[in-house]
Amino acid sequence: MPRLLILVAIAALAACTTYGSVGLESRKIASLYSVSPQIQWNRYTDGDLEVWTVDGPLLDSLQFTSALGDGDSLYEIEGQEQMPRFRGNMSESEVMEFVVDSFAAVGAQKVEPTGLAPASFGQRPGFRFDLAYQSGDGLDKLGSVLGTLNDGKLYLIIYTGAAQYYYPKYKQAVEALFASIKI
């Protein structure tokens, strides 16, 4: 953990994000589909991303993208134009590559994708894959991604967490959440 961040944290100065919470009732995501949250989450929005977390995004994080279109990047870095960008004619393999490269672009290390396979995204055919990587500090992390391509648009749900304790802890709830998608 960069020591400077610890200093900032102690002095309660980490950049302000206002967190809300998500109850158990069904929830609409970006006017595209609804999910059943399964457990209580904290939530915030970051640009076009809706992010849910129980213990804070360093430890566990469930990200919902809006519909990504041609030329959209998954993440943005201030002042940096060159980012991996989605293209409407991508295959599932290329989407997996796009997600892996996006993770690397924001500092994830040694990102390894596995298990790309078809999966249901609500009533629509979609795909899923898993990720293993390290944070820049070297903390082992795991991820699971569910997505669907529809008419040149990409929807993604990205679950990540510390490999120890946190990713396994909410995995079951996340799988149930994936299964609850209604478009």
Partner: peptide, 9 residues
């Protein structure tokens, strides 16, 4: 790593 997906295709 993408065998399953490609076989489906």
């Amino acid at each position: 790593p993408d065998r399953t997906m490609i076989e489906t295709y």
